[in-house]
Design a protein around this nucleic acid. Structure first.
Lengths: 169, 169
DNA sequence: ATCTTATTGTTCTAGGATATAACAATTAGC
DNA sequence: GCTAATTGTTATATCCTAGAACAATAAGAT
């Protein structure tokens, strides 16, 4: 079950040079970046389906979750924490504000910054959002095998991200 | 701030309600999809830098690698194997053909399909490509801690992808 | 204080990746 | 032979990401 049962066809002799003298071609299935991309797309796909009713995308989810957890942060702080360029954050925040879920409040000390907060409706929304997210996340954890495997995966991904982690945002 | 098992699963009150009565907000850092996305972006970033000289993007790499490993496959087969819609595959293949790295040959049995092959120059290119890729992949493996951790990670990602894996393509 | 530099939010723009619909050529089923 | 399905293709729309530039504001140096 967990061996070499790959989808990727199986013509070629595998080990031998396929084209003229090509050494050891890697199987796409064993490439870190490729697997990461496929897995991420799958998880996001599940996320999008789960949140179709609430009409919420991953980026919006992450922003709401951050504001709920730490209200009052500046736009640039949240953007940086999430790895989103502040230029791209604007439209995102505009949408959340237009939906009445969050709002920007002019900073009193630094009047060019905007402190982000949930509206009362936003708070109610986040409650529903978290319920949906829980079933989504649990589905992913189930696929992995359980919480232990989840922790293991997170740990491995953290290693990848550790060194220079945030490429600035 | 190292290990620490997170509480993202079902139960777990974790912290106090942040906003008005919000239960257990998850830390973005413990969310599978979020971590996957960040890690994938980091790996792709490294990939793009590594391949800046060769002017090659991940998707093109994967196509060349597949053609090199299994020449003669149809366009739609390679596209499906890589999770690329055949509509989006056209421009990709156009570019590779324009660069003289691969070509389409009309199938003799089924004349609407195109069998994909590397050109001689494509074969030479793939050789250089694999050299670059090796140092890139080794850098990622080093970050993870070693080949054992790489295998572990791949295994965990395979679990995620296992069930319905290919969302069709 | 003033002059210069940096930060914050913003707009505009451009590239890439992904998704769907439709179409011509070809093949397969009946 | 007629109808339905497949293959490659074009066209299109959306989202995500990235970079440059700008006004308002703040911070630092003189």
């Amino acid at each position: 079950m967990t061996a070499d049962s790959n989808t990727t066809t199986r013509h070629a002799p595998a080990t031998e040079a396929t084209a003229a003298g090509l050494p050891a071609l890697p199987q796409m299935d064993s490439i870190i970046g490729y697997k990461l991309r496929r897995a991420q797309l799958l998880v996001f796909q599940d996320f999008l389906q789960s949140f179709a009713k609430l009409n919420l995308r991953p980026a919006e989810f992450s922003v709401l979750a951050m504001i709920a957890r730490t209200p009052g942060l500046k736009q640039s702080e949240i953007a940086a924490a999430l790895g989103i360029k502040r230029a791209n954050f604007v439209a995102l925040m505009d949408a959340l504000e237009k939906r009445g879920l969050a709002d920007r409040r002019k900073g009193d000390i630094d009047r060019r910054s905007h402190a982000l907060h949930l509206t009362p409706e936003g708070t109610r929304f986040v409650r529903k959002m978290m319920a949906v997210w829980n079933t989504h996340e649990n589905r992913m954890i189930d696929r992995l095998g359980g919480p232990a495997e989840r922790d293991l995966l997170i740990g491995l991904l953290d290693r990848l991200l550790a060194p220079d982690a945030t490429p600035d945002a």
